[in-house]
């Protein structure tokens, strides 16, 4: 693969974007790709928005993705999908978790959570929307929502040659391998 692929995971602090990106990059690395990954730390733990950028290919230079350059965006939260839409390649794919987390101005009643985001984005881009939170809860562990979303992302990337189960097992806590693999497969089935 000559061309570098760009993936963007966006969400809210605490949603598990970092673990998902860790598993993704472990899988890509095992397949021999050059991988770069960029996160902004700092105040995210305090309820701010978070983004993880992953680029892979033969040789990757910049660790960050520009506007209109992401091949796939996975939005762990609905409003974050709207915030990052400009980063999607017009021919790219957006996977959206139908899951709303109001920000502080919304909670205080100073702003309203935008209505109709999913319809707006579906009219502009190739999107897949599902409720990863409900799926994870149905599997018995709501914390695996991030892995459900990772499953959907991997399906979109279409890289069956990579041993994703191995990548999951070496990055999740011992004893949680099986539930995370289930979550991953459930996510794959969504797109």
């Amino acid at each position: 693969m000559k061309e570098t692929k760009n993936i963007l995971l966006v969400g809210v602090g605490g949603q598990g974007t970092i673990l998902a990106s860790k598993i993704l990059s472990a899988g890509l690395l095992s397949a021999g790709y050059d991988v770069k990954m960029s996160e902004i730390h700092g105040m995210s733990q305090r309820g701010g928005n978070v983004s993880t950028q992953i680029r892979f290919g033969e040789t990757v230079y910049s660790p960050i993705i520009g506007r209109g350059e992401a091949d796939v965006i996975v939005a762990f939260e609905t409003m974050e999908a709207l915030r990052w839409i400009e980063y999607l390649k017009p021919s790219g794919k957006m996977v959206i978790n139908d899951f709303e987390i109001p920000s502080v101005p919304i909670q205080m009643g100073a702003a309203e959570y935008p209505k109709g985001i999913l319809e707006e984005l579906a009219a502009k881009a190739d999107v897949s929307v599902f409720r990863a939170g409900a799926i994870a809860e149905g599997l018995g562990n709501s914390k695996t929502m991030n892995i459900v979303l990772l499953g959907a992302l991997v399906k979109v990337l279409n890289m069956p040659e990579i041993d994703w189960e191995q990548a999951i097992c070496s990055n999740v806590k011992q004893g949680f391998e099986e539930i995370n693999i289930k979550a991953f497969r459930a996510g794959e089935a969504q797109v």
Binding site: V12, G47, G48, N49, R67, G68, M79, E80, L82, R83, I85, E86, Y87, L88, P90, S103, V104, P105, I106, A111, E112, Y113, P114, G116, I117, E120, L121, K124, A125
Partner: peptide, 12 residues
């Protein structure tokens, strides 16, 4: 790049 007139509320 794609563009939407809808605005995401800030998440400070």
């Amino acid at each position: 790049a794609l563009h939407s007139d809808m605005k995401a509320v800030v998440r400070p």
